[in-house]
Every structure is written in structure tokens, then in C-alpha cells.
């Protein structure tokens, strides 16, 4: 009965997350490192994501209205005082691939009225399309604005016959009126984890990567299992002295570039960005 369940697991229900060692017993905690110094802004990750996750191409007009569906987007920034060259606007830009940060304390989760988004045991911020009613509160409360809403019935126009044949069969095609966002290529993880479970092991490092990480020509994106202390991602997080459960990171060594975006909002993101190095002499 639910009441006995309530009493039995009381302390578990009253725990605040994230806490130190939360994923020690868990086989998986998916995380990412993005090296901005390596990123050349080529948009290959975005294209790979469109192909992998059945993202609709919305067209110029709707893109201009802010209806684009890019789960991973390349943002361009210019340093303070720099002027924008009109002939080659990309020149001097710094790039930042922005995707769902899979926050441990995600602001989008508690505000959803129907519980369509919640945290999975392997540390992902999930989105249940079937349950979503489209109140868009999650998007309103997401500080990174990486949640994308189906403003139109995209499948109508995005894949005219016979293009629907190129859709990824492992991924749902979303209907109008639901919210969607980066899933860390959940379908790949799910298949991999199931296979590993059948074999009685856990996934090896690099066995499954997200489409963006796979497509990145400069290997700027590293994806892996943070719960596995020997994985590349876990080592990078350690080297960069970023602790998942802390909102203020102590940096004891010089030259450490790792940071998480908008950490002061206590979102505890799962993606560490490595700051871009600049040649100060020029």
C-alpha cells in the first residue's frame, strides 16, 4: 500500500539532491565535457543531432521567428569591445555549443504540472512526450533556454515523401504541442545499457557516445560515464576540479579551465565547459 511505502522509505523521500557520493552505488551517471578551445563552430554536432533525433528543419521564416528545434546549437560571442565585421561576421567569434545541461537540480523539473520531466536514476533529465501538455513552464524556468517546443505540426512539412524514410526508427517523431530537448541520445544509451545488462557487465568507456560527440571533428565533446571513476569524462572532471554536487568549485591549481555555466543558480549541470585559451599578445 502506498502509505506503508511512504513510511518505509521516509528518509529516502526526504533527501535533497545532489549530495556527495550520490552515484557511488549507481552504475551510470552520464556527463559531458566540452572543450571550447577545440570547438571551431563547424555545426557538425548540430547536423548530427538533426539526423539522429529526427529534428525537423523548420525553414528560414520560422527560424527567424524563434521556432527552431536545434537541440544543440552553436552560439557565437564576440569579446567586449570587439566590433562585428560585416563582411566576415564569423571572424573573431567564439563558439559555444549549447545543449541541455542535464542539471542535477534542474529548474525545469519541479515546475512541470504533469510531471512530464523528471530525473532518471542515471542522472538524466528526461522528457516524457506522451505526458506533456505543453504548459511551457519548464522552458520559462530553464536558465539556458534549451527546451524546444513544437509550435507547429512539424512532421507535416519537415519530411515530405519520401524523406520520412530517413527518420531514425528508434526515436519518436514528436507531435505539435509538446516540449522536447536534448536527451544525451537516450536511444543509444538505452540500447547499449540493455545489451551490457544482458552480458552481465556495465558499458565500457566510449562504447556508446552521443551523436554530437561522435560527429565532432575536433573531439571537442567528450561523453561518458561519470560514475565510472576510470572513464575519460570522470578523469577530466577530476582534473578540472569540478565536483558534481558542489555549486562553488574550489580550484587549488592554476591553469584550470573547467567550469559549469550559470553555476550560481544552483542547477548543478552535468556538462563541464573548458574555457577557451586566448592569445593575449595579438
Amino acid at each position: 500500500m502506498s502509505l506503508s511505502n511512504l513510511i518505509k522509505n521516509w528518509s529516502n523521500f526526504r533527501t535533497r539532491r545532489p549530495y556527495e557520493g550520490q552515484y557511488d552505488d549507481s552504475p551510470y551517471k552520464w556527463a559531458m565535457v566540452i572543450d571550447l578551445d577545440s570547438c571551431i563552430g563547424c555545426n557538425a554536432c548540430t547536423v548530427a543531432c538533426y539526423a539522429e533525433n529526427n529534428l525537423p528543419v523548420v525553414g528560414k521564416e520560422r527560424f527567424g521567428k524563434g521556432h527552431a528545434m536545434h537541440w544543440i546549437r552553436i552560439e557565437r560571442y564576440w569579446g567586449e569591445g570587439e566590433t562585428l565585421e560585416t563582411e566576415f561576421p564569423e571572424r573573431g567569434a567564439q563558439y559555444l555549443p549549447m545543449l541541455c545541461q542535464q542539471c542535477e537540480a534542474a529548474p525545469c523539473e519541479p515546475v512541470c504540472p504533469v510531471g512530464a520531466t523528471h530525473h532518471s536514476p542515471d542522472g538524466l533529465n528526461t522528457q516524457v512526450y506522451n505526458r506533456c501538455v505543453g504548459s511551457r513552464y519548464c522552458s520559462a524556468n530553464c536558465p539556458y533556454k534549451v527546451r524546444y517546443f513544437n509550435w507547429w505540426n512539424y512532421p507535416e512539412r519537415a519530411w515530405p515523401n519520401p524523406l520520412e524514410l530517413q527518420l531514425n526508427p528508434d526515436v519518436t517523431v514528436r507531435s505539435k504541442g509538446v516540449m522536447e530537448k536534448c536527451t544525451f541520445c537516450m536511444q543509444r544509451l538505452r540500447a547499449g545499457m540493455d545489451k551490457a545488462k544482458t552480458d552481465g557487465r556495465i558499458l565500457a568507456d566510449g562504447e556508446v557516445v552521443t551523436a554530437c560527440a561522435q560527429a565532432c571533428p575536433t573531439s571537442a565533446i567528450t561523453f561518458g560515464n561519470l560514475a565510472d571513476k576510470n572513464s575519460k569524462v570522470a578523469k577530466m572532471w577530476k582534473t578540472q576540479q569540478v565536483d558534481l554536487a558542489k555549486n562553488v568549485q574550489e580550484k587549488t591549481e592554476d591553469g584550470i579551465r573547467g567550469y559549469r555555466i550559470l553555476e550560481d543558480l544552483n542547477t548543478y549541470p552535468s556538462i563541464v565547459y573548458l574555457e577557451r585559451l586566448r592569445n593575449m599578445a595579438s
Binding site: 523521500f13 526526504r14 539532491r17 519541479p110 523528471h118 548543478y268
Partner: peptide, 22 residues
């Protein structure tokens, strides 16, 4: 209160935004 708390606990164990489940 009992109904709300037990509903929160009985549905698939969902953690949201790092807040306690109940």
C-alpha cells in the same frame, strides 16, 4: 495531506529538481 504524500511516493519514484520526493 496523506493522499498527496502517498501519491508522490507511490508513483514511479521521481526526483524532480533535486527536491525531496515528498
Amino acid at each position: 495531506l496523506v493522499l498527496i504524500a502517498s501519491a508522490q511516493a507511490s508513483f514511479i519514484y521521481q526526483v524532480r529538481g533535486g527536491r525531496p520526493v515528498v
